[in-house]
Design a protein around this nucleic acid. Structure first.
Length: 374
DNA sequence: ACGAAACCTCCAAG
DNA sequence: ACTTGGAGGTTTC
């Protein structure tokens, strides 16, 4: 008979900003971790470690080697003692002594490139933390909801946002919040929604007239800091307009390469922007925006796979190729994968981000609607 | 054919 | 990476 000894789940307080096992264990620097039923599992120092993580803790469980009961009593005595070192093992394995936040700050301070490239998803959290309502604490961690436009209309908002790292966006956010909160009817945003796709908690007045997609897009364009691409992101992910196609540089390249756009005139102006979107709407119909996001993602994946292939085929030594095929992933690919996730899976917060930055500017149009010259 | 307004393209900067 | 806004050129009326 064999005895499998498995510990209870234990937990270690770790902030996600200090360790994210989903990122870390996939990063290509460790090769033996497997994700099984939502747990990360690996053998390490004579035991199997199972890991789970929530926003405040790393949870771990240990499975010790199977043993015959006939085994020496001495061995069985050793095990519990060894078990005590698992927390220390994790601590060591993940270098939890290091304060990652401080290191990021330090590296960012001495290297603008690092500051620019290193993934920090703190902006939205900062906005919530400083201007949103506190909902509750969980395990001592405060959770703030997304601020309403009116929460961002105070006096020092712009300079405050600047301090928080919002840069040139500070001005746009502050100004737009003021316009939405004070100069627009309270249901203005609602009137821009797709009536066929109501918001989660929208209460549209029965008599309110809804805009068309084009009207919503144009209304958003009037806001300073909101160009056609951002307006379409808001329309698609925030306001329920499935036909909205955000055209960024990447989509523009797809349009040129696969849909024969801009073959003669390479200039990308508003007329061209609209033409690309119109073409995809014509081609794909009502949910063109979601179709576009599929192609967008597929293209990113193809691109990253291709660059991986390139690296492999250019590998000068067998060793390098082995490492490559063993799963080392270039930083570029990791970045792209992250981008993909953000693009394809609009998380609940997305809608609110959009809402907080919406509001119509002055009546005068900032952008011409003219088509290119005849 | 002229002058002004409208419009466009380019580009730097945030 | 996207948007603004100014300079300077072109088109329209």
């Amino acid at each position: 008979m064999v005895l499998k000894r498995i510990s209870e789940w234990r937990k270690l307080p770790v902030a996600l900003s200090e360790l994210c096992i989903d990122t870390t264990l996939r990063c290509g620097q460790s090769f033996r971790w497997q994700k099984i039923n939502d747990e990360w599992v690996c053998t390490l120092h004579g035991r199997i470690l199972s890991l789970k993580q929530d926003s405040t803790h790393l949870h771990y469980k240990v499975t010790w080697p199977e043993q015959s009961l006939k085994g020496s009593p001495a061995k069985q005595k050793l095990a519990p003692k060894a078990e005590d070192d698992t927390q220390a093992l994790l601590h060591h394995y993940f270098s939890l002594d290091l304060d990652l936040s401080s290191l990021y700050e330090q590296w960012s301070n001495v290297d603008p490139n690092f500051r620019k490239k290193a993934p920090t998803f703190t902006g939205v959290h900062k906005l919530c933390k400083h201007y949103g309502p506190l909902i509750a604490h969980i395990d001592g961690v405060p959770f703030y909801d997304f601020p309403k436009p009116d929460d961002l209309t105070g006096n020092g908002v712009e300079s405050n946002l600047r301090e928080l790292g919002f840069g040139y966006r500070a001005k746009y956010i502050a100004e737009t919040a003021r316009i939405v909160a004070h100069e627009k009817p309270s249901n203005w945003l609602e009137t821009l929604r797709n009536p066929d796709n109501p918001g989660f908690s929208s209460q549209l007045k029965p008599d309110a007239r809804n805009s068309t997609y084009k009207e919503a897009h144009e209304a958003l364009l009037a806001l300073k800091g909101v160009g056609p691409k951002v307006a379409d992101c808001v329309c698609l992910m925030g306001l329920g307009w499935g036909e909205s196609v955000p055209v960024d540089t990447h989509v523009w390249q797809i349009a040129q390469r696969d849909y024969k756009f801009g073959k003669k005139a390479k200039t990308f102006n508003k007329a061209m922007y609209d033409a690309v979107g119109d073409h995809f709407r014509d081609l794909w119909g009502k949910y063109a925006g979601w179709a576009h996001s599929v192609l967008f993602t597929a293209d990113l994946k193809a691109f990253s796979d291709q660059s991986l292939m390139k690296e492999e085929t250019h590998g000068v030594s067998i060793k390098e190729e082995l490492i490559e095929t063993n799963g080392i992933v270039s930083p570029k690919k990791r970045k792209l994968v992250e981008t993909k996730t953000v693009t394809v899976k609009p998380e609940p917060g997305v809608e609110e981000i959009k809402l907080a930055t919406e509001g119509e500017g002055d009546a005068k149009r900032r952008r011409t609607r003219s088509r290119g010259r005849a």
